[in-house]
């Protein structure tokens, strides 16, 4: 196609070009569906379908193995809100989140700032603090259990050696949840530290120079003027992701306390697990799941809100 296109009417001109462009595109469209097909099918089967399923299930009295089920409307939710265990579980979960999030975020930031404030042994510290993130939590939970052992544990041994009273950390109502929180902070700290380190590295050095020239010489002024505001987006992110992970706390509870003593460490996912997979009350467990889901999505929404407000240039 060359001169032929340049014949009489100028109006005819766009048409051949458009036809030429459209054809390969449609071919590619076909290929595209083939490429995304498996992913779409699996997504519907393993993600979107089950998500709808869990919501639907929460309105039924379905029990695993039962031959039939009935729609019972909001009855599961009514039962749940009337159940003391649910409220204990929700309160414990929130307590866990409220302790672990600030604990691991503040410590993670502190460690990151300390590491970044000098040059010596940076890689060593980063590795050490990150180690708990890598180690299988279940295995480490069992190690913690032994460290917290009332008689032979390291913690009580150390306490006794300085003359303080020993505790049955995981066996006493007052300390069981707190002990799990400590393990939670221990595990999450390194992850947050690494995210903060990445945030700190991406702050342009010139800003610190400018702050220095502008009269913000001290470490605190520089932190207020440059570090903290520029870490803003990272901080929001770290807080939200730690929050979401804390809402999912299950491993340590299941292996160390089974929710006890007397429900002192009962948390949402553990309650859901017991109802759904020990007592096979699928409908009721689904209702618990929906509550859990709402909490997690609410956190995500908060994050979206906060990040949208921050307009920074690269």
């Amino acid at each position: 196609m060359s001169d032929a296109v340049l014949t009489p009417s100028a109006l005819a001109l766009p048409r051949p070009a458009a036809v030429l462009r459209r054809r390969p595109l449609r071919l590619r469209g076909g290929a595209a569906y083939a490429l995304v097909g498996p992913a779409v099918v699996l997504m519907l089967l393993m993600l979107i379908g089950p998500l709808c399923g869990v919501i639907a299930l929460s309105f039924t009295d379905y029990q695993l193995g039962a031959p039939s089920f009935a729609w019972i409307g909001l009855a599961n939710y009514q039962d749940m809100f009337a159940d003391k265990t649910f409220w204990i579980s929700l309160t414990n979960t929130l307590t866990y989140v409220v302790v672990v999030v600030p604990g691991s975020v503040v410590l993670g930031l502190g460690v990151a700032l300390l590491i970044q404030s000098g040059t010596g042994l940076r890689a060593f510290y980063r590795t050490v603090y990150f180690l708990p993130v890598m180690a299988t939590l279940i295995a480490m939970a069992i190690v913690w259990e032994f460290m917290l052992h009332p008689q032979f544990g390291l913690v009580n041994g150390l306490l006794r050696s300085v003359g303080l009273p020993a505790h049955g950390w995981l066996q006493e109502r007052d300390t069981a949840l707190l002990s799990l929180c400590v393990i939670g902070v221990w595990q999450a700290l390194g992850f947050n530290m690494v995210l903060f380190l990445a945030g700190l590295v991406s702050i342009p050095k010139a800003l610190y120079d400018a702050a220095e020239i502008d009269g913000a010489g001290g470490a605190w002024s520089q932190f207020r003027l440059v570090t903290w505001p520029l870490l803003g987006p990272v901080t929001v992110f770290v807080v939200v992701i730690t929050g979401i992970r804390s809402f999912q706390v299950f491993d340590t509870v299941h292996v160390l306390t089974k929710g006890g003593p007397s429900k002192a460490t009962e948390v949402l996912i553990h309650t859901m697990y017991m109802e759904g997979f020990e007592f096979f009350r699928s409908g009721y467990a689904a209702a618990l799941t929906v509550v859990f889901l709402v909490c997690v999505l609410a956190l995500t929404l908060v994050k979206a809100r906060l990040t949208a407000r921050q307009v920074h240039y690269a």
């Binding site: 998500l51 869990v54 997690v296």
Partner: peptide
């Protein structure tokens, strides 16, 4: 955004 625990029951 969907945490894996949320879909556990139906997938099971």
């Amino acid at each position: 955004l969907i945490p894996p625990q949320a879909t556990a029951i139906p997938v099971f």
